[in-house]
Each structure stands twice: as structure tokens, then as C-alpha cells.
Nucleic acid binder design. Structure first.
Length: 207
DNA sequence: GTCCAGGGCCGTT
DNA sequence: AACGGCCATGGA
């Protein structure tokens, strides 16, 4: 069943190549710092939209703690401060803790993201999933969009897409992830673009 | 006032 | 394995 790959080609023709999904959504340039923001954004965006996450980034920027290291230091001293800054993205007490623990994990074990991502995909994924508050979707978003690792992200948009296109009548995370990966070249760029296209498609239908 | 936005965790069945 | 309740904000 190469239907999935054909759907990818179809969406690519329809919407064009999404230049840089995260840049477009975050309205930011792709820099080294940006990778950290992408990873942090993956947690902040849980069950909310990007506008809210933008507000948090602005707060963090204003407070000059917009990096993994700075958040780690700030959170260690005073979690309440992080809570206050993270508030606009909702679930702020949980998310402050989640963000802090993620930063703590990176800094204390690897010093920086680069080092962490230098390991193989399987190791990175297992370690991310061990951090409380980081589940499969958040972990894979971090791996794919911040780490450039070839792993396909399943989210609500993807499930709606699967349903609309009658790709499968089973919707569990692992099953769908497997299905997409088996029917696509193992290429992070393609996974990124396809994911962006699925969201663009989902939003265009909603209107 | 009501609805909802790109999850994850925990407890129950 | 599947489902329900919970976490919380601000814009439409």
C-alpha cells in the first residue's frame, strides 16, 4: 500500500513545499538557539495552540531566560517564576515542572542539546520518554523538529487525516507511526514536510 | 457564558 | 487495551 506516499505527493503539489514549518509557526529564524526553542515549544504546546506558546516565549525573552541552561538555573532557584512566565500556555504548574525537568535532564547529563542528539535515535527517544510529562508525541516532535531525527510524529491532525483518507481504522500511536514510516522513505525532511502538510490540509478544511 | 486549542498521567473497568 | 477525569489559560 503506497497510498500514503501518494497522499504525500498530492499534498506537496497542492500546498507546495512547506519552507520551514517551525519558522513559519514560530515566526523566528532557524538558529542554534532556535532548536532549543523548538524543543521547549514541543512541551509548551501540549493541548494548546501556538499563539499561547508565542506569548510564553515573549515572557521568557523579556525575562532573559530563553535557553535550556537559563531555564534550568531559574527553575532550580525558583519554580514559581517559571510558572508565572509559562502561564499563558495553560496547565502552567504542570508545564513549568515539565520544562524544568527537561532542561535539568539535558544540562546535568549532556550540558547541551547538541550532545544529547549526538546519540542514536533509539537511545534519545527512550531517554526522553523517561522524563515525566514527555510522552510519545512530545518526544517525537523534539526528535524530528529539533534533532532532525527520522521519526514520524502522530498527533490529532494526523489521526483526523488518517480517518478522512481512510488510511486505517486503527489509531493507536505506535501502529500509525509504524504505518507511515513503512510507507515513506526514511528521511527526516520528508517526515517534517508531511507533518506540516497534514496540518495545513487540516486547517484548510476546517475553514 | 461557552467552547476550544497539535498531551500526558493516573485510576477504573 | 480503552476510557474518563484532571490539569488552566485567553481568545473567538
Amino acid at each position: 500500500m503506497k497510498k500514503i506516499y501518494q497522499l504525500y505527493r498530492f499534498l506537496l503539489r497542492k500546498h507546495g513545499r512547506p519552507k520551514d514549518f517551525w519558522r513559519k509557526w514560530c515566526k523566528r529564524k532557524k538558529t542554534k538557539e532556535d532548536k532549543e526553542e523548538i524543543a521547549l515549544g514541543a512541551i509548551l504546546t501540549q493541548r494548546t495552540n501556538w499563539k499561547r506558546v508565542e506569548l510564553v516565549f515573549e515572557n521568557l525573552k523579556r525575562a532573559k531566560i530563553l535557553s535550556i541552561k537559563k531555564i534550568y538555573q531559574a527553575g532550580k532557584k525558583d519554580l514559581k517564576l517559571l510558572e508565572k512566565l509559562i502561564r499563558p500556555s495553560g496547565f502552567y504548574r504542570q508545564k513549568a515542572k515539565r520544562i524544568y525537568r527537561f532542561c535539568q535532564f539535558i544540562v546535568e547529563n549532556y550540558r547541551n542539546l547538541e550532545k544529547f542528539f549526538s546519540q542514536d535515535l533509539k537511545t534519545c527517544r527512550e531517554e526522553l520518554l523517561d522524563i515525566p510529562g514527555i510522552g510519545p508525541e512530545t518526544a517525537d516532535s523534539i526528535l524530528l523538529f529539533a534533532g532532525g531525527k527520522p521519526i514520524f510524529v502522530i498527533d490529532e491532525y494526523t489521526r483526523c487525516f488518517v480517518k478522512r483518507e481512510k488510511i486505517s481504522n486503527q489509531f493507536s500511536y505506535n501502529y500509525l507511526q509504524d504505518l507511515f514510516q513503512k510507507n515513506l522513505p526514511r528521511d527526516a525532511k520528508i517526515y517534517q514536510d508531511f507533518h506540516a502538510l497534514i496540518i495545513l490540509e487540516g486547517q484548510s478544511i476546517k475553514l
